[in-house]
Design a binder for these strands. Structure first.
Lengths: 291, 291
DNA sequence: CGGAAGATTGATAACTCTCAAAAATAGTGG
DNA sequence: CCACTATTTTTGAGAGTTATCAATCTTCCG
């Protein structure tokens, strides 16, 4: 928790592209480059980007323009989802990675365990998310994936997916962008866990989930959404303790910021929560592919 | 910091591929799946994977077999590196991403800043690392990259790189795998920052750096290596405070585990340090591409 | 040599954790 | 639909890492 309070002059003029050799010490240059856009109450109340039923299409359309044919292929892929119960493992240490799971409805999470039993949740999978494109080229997973709620899931043989991608460059492109999106989230999580305090961590997580879920049409008109995550999981998400999560939640509640119960979260004051969290949605901004 | 201490029976038999519907509650299934291979003192004393001079070749060879032609192309790419000083920014918020940087010699880091000035370092770039393949498809970077030591750097126009990749599928494949490798490291960092204590965090970071650097021939015969990172940066890497880093370092030193000074780290007792860190190098394992 | 950056130290505060138990909720079977 | 159990949430008290603040010492570098 270091704050840069120095008054050293900042050399904004020296573009990183220029060749001139800096003489300042590392941190003088590194730290003050922060230059944030105003914290904006993120626009979660926007309608989902698409009204399509197929969550995969809905997701990929954000990243790359899809043609009719692409959509048909994707629809075929997602034709018959299976129901799976909360707690089911989709990927674990010794999984044979010849299949990829697609969350159609419900929620999953990725996590790592420590020998002592400590768990760090690495991310949540929401409708439209593939579990896990990162695995496709790996022979052995380095983390596990499980469902956190009863879900509808499609199992896609890796072979089939690869064939699809080979024939549909737009889909392939969209999927790589989706992977980059995941990484951007991961980076923000590292910042969240490493540098923010309990109140900020929780608030930030809530803001992120609301924005992500709103994009796949999972946020109700009243602004509430399902968050099938217990306090233990919230703890493992933020690197805190369940007890401390509980107390932090109480504070958020009594401050009139959220309502949480029956696996549903209602953010009463989006703007204020985002301010507390220091939430800046630019890391979730989706940049349509240029090519 | 939760420990799974329950004695609930573990259903190892239920493969994630099976369709049967679990009845257990989420955490019963999720937690106990931990089944680590023994903590092995990682084999850092292995010679670098290749004796080539070109660090990019040296790196990519780990991921995919390269042919003579590929190597020649890469050699041409890295022909004339430029010297840049510590502290120089390679990428910042408003960078125009028409160029990619390759670290040939030296070290860089990626980081994010908070409005209050808190900094979280997201990863280190070592010789052979591209800064940053993740940016290629983005229009605006979500984090910054700077050099932490005087370095030799190659600036590659994105266009040129794309052309190269289009003509050299093996290189392209190797680069995607390299990106997956980066992500695996990022995941482990999240675990590190979220769940381990100060001593473990530092130890783990040291183990990781030693292993990564040994693979690019940056670890001397006596096992020492350059680590041009001051205590402030170590703090921002681990989510701790410089003061606490200082005290933790003293402990590592007085316990006879490391020697650190003049920007050089010498790990005296690799095995013991790895044990303290709970270091398991499997997340750094490189899986040669199957295709 | 002299100034600046980095490392170290001491004392104190505080956020977060630990432990343990009670209350509330959800889930299951009769 | 109720009883019963397991899970989850909530509380309290106290301890402990880790943070904060500020000063000193050391090292680096022009």
């Amino acid at each position: 928790m270091l704050r840069y309070t120095g008054s050293t002059a900042i050399d904004y003029s020296s573009s990183p592209n220029c060749e001139n050799v800096g003489t300042d010490a590392a941190d003088v240059i590194i730290r003050p480059e922060f230059n944030r856009n105003q914290l904006s109450p993120f626009s979660v109340h926007a309608r989902p980007c698409s009204t399509r039923q197929n969550p995969l299409v809905r997701k990929l359309e954000q990243f790359s323009r899809l043609e009719q044919g692409d959509i048909q292929s994707l629809d075929k892929l997602v034709a018959s989802p299976k129901a799976m119960r909360a707690g089911q493992l989709l990927v674990h240490e010794s999984s044979v990675l010849d299949e990829v799971y697609l969350i159609v409805q419900g929620m999953g999470c990725r996590y790592k365990l420590l020998p002592g039993g400590e768990r760090q949740i690495l991310g949540y999978l929401i409708p439209g998310d593939l579990c896990d494109i990162h695995f496709i080229t790996l022979t052995k997973p380095d983390h596990s994936v499980a469902l956190v709620s009863d879900s509808q899931v499609v199992k896609i043989p890796t072979q089939k997916l690869n064939a699809l991608l080979a024939n549909n460059p737009r889909i392939e492109r969209a999927l790589s962008l989706a992977a980059l999106h995941d990484i951007a989230i991961l980076r923000e999580w590292l910042l969240n866990v490493g540098q923010r305090n309990a109140l900020q961590k929780l608030s930030h997580f809530f803001c992120e989930m609301m924005l992500r879920l709103s994009r796949v049409g999972q946020v109700a008109d009243d602004g509430s959404f399902e968050l099938p995550i217990n306090q233990m999981a919230l703890a493992d998400t933020t690197g805190l303790t369940p007890v401390h999560i509980n107390r932090t939640l109480q504070r958020l509640r009594s401050d009139g910021l959220i309502r949480l119960g029956q696996r549903r979260l209602y953010i009463i004051d989006t703007t204020r929560l985002a301010a507390i969290a220091g939430f800046d949605d630019s890391y979730l901004q989706i940049n349509q592919c240029r090519r």
